[in-house]
Nucleic acid binder design. Sequence first.
DNA 1: GAGTTTGAAACT
DNA 2: CAGTTTCAAACTC
Length: 516
Amino acid sequence: MDKPEPGSGSGPAKTAARQLDFTAICRASAATAILPDHPQAQLQSKLLALALKRQAEAEPKGNAARPDPEVDPKKIESPKVRQQSNVEFKDGTIKKQKQCNCKNSRCLKLYCECFAAGIYCNGCNCTNCHNNVEHESARREAVGATLERNPNAFRSKIAKSPHRSQDNRIEAGEVTTVGKHNKGCNCKKSWCLKKYCECFQANIMCSENCRCIDCKNCEGSEEARALRQGEHTNVMAFMQHGSTQAFGYIPQAIKKRKIQSLFTGEAPANTLDNRSAQKYSQETFLTSLSNSSHLPSIPLHAAAARATMLRSSDSMYRSQLAAIRGLKDAKELCSRLVVVSAEASSKLAGKKLTANENAEIDQCETSSTTSNQLHKDKVESRVQVLSGGDKVQTGSSGSDPVDIQHERAMSPGTLELMCDEQDRTFLEAQSPSVVGGCSKQPKISSSTTQGFTDLYAEQERLVLTNFLNCLNRLVTSGSMQVMHPSSSQTVREGQQEPLQNGIKDFKLQRNGDHLH
DNA sequence: GAGTTTGAAACT
DNA sequence: CAGTTTCAAACTC
């Protein structure tokens, strides 16, 4: 506490690193103070905040054991003013500064928290400590050596960032500091949800700087939030059951590389874990969807979060309409869209199948995993739809319109959308042929002629325009239900009236398209 | 409190 | 720069 001030009276640093104590470091780096942003410094500054306020007037020099962001870094003149073993709080309680337990480093390496924080050891449990005034020369030498290795060694590892969560608010219960780790963490087994992780410890999210594996310390992470809210038990229980890979949460930089590799089939270095993790994630998710008892002890919110996370790391948004519009609505809407798509296709292309088209269909279907009989059925069904108009059934017959569309006139974009939809919405109705159709999509597009491209574009325009209108209707009617929940019951009992209305409009517009 | 795990730092 | 070792904090039992 009352150790001499080694830096005092020594004047400005004159001969670079060797002469640097932490004071000199601060001076040498002029523009930016090195220590004030240090995580530990921030932590301790919080602990000291109240005490400092009380002491501020009595001790104008600022007895900050750790620099506070509000404290002018220039006032931090020496280790002495930073070091302070005991902190007295308003309520009279005394809180001790963190004490290291170093044994072999003499507290002269960054292993030592005190040394790394730029303070003398004081009341620590360390052995053979040289991080004190009695060993000042050794300490300075160690500082110099450390700076030689890494000039930023004593700078804050956490960079302040203007980044805010998407809606510019602090999520409830989340005390995440805005900023990111300069160097990034490299965690492998802790999911960045333990204090082993420097990011987690600093109360910040992992960033693109991190090279961590199976990171769950990302924006929107339920676990990270839960941990910070103190739901440690639930989260740990969940993580045990959900396994390391259950989320496939990956920091941005890695995510970019690794998700890409999922599609390209490439295997960038160091991606195996996450690739398998993602594969596992999807499998686990599918399983848990179809069998909710699969993960019995997973908190509901975590399971829901997992579903969302699989889609996107940053989209935690859930529409209010989600509680109103059901799966049935979505299915029906999709079925209608498929009909419109087919009709648009037949209108635009005439009702003939060109030789090219047939060849392409054959190519696609021959290479699919479906049986020849199924192939035949589909072609027949397709012809029926194209020539017969409104014969599409929304039931589960072999001539499922979705299948039909995948086999033929859908543009690559639409096909992709449908495949995606299939994955998400129709899991329980998934058919092997459809899955096969999805996987064949690149093959179709690769052989698509310019004529088809134009056709697809026009078809897509028609479908999407109708889709947009239909969605608008749904949103409007849904919003009304949200605002007037009392009437929603009636509406629900009336068998999804809003959707029917929306689809009615949809049909009307469709007919209008025909007319034009 | 002892033993283990973890990841940063240091070293090769 | 990658791999290995050392180290001390965090964690578990």
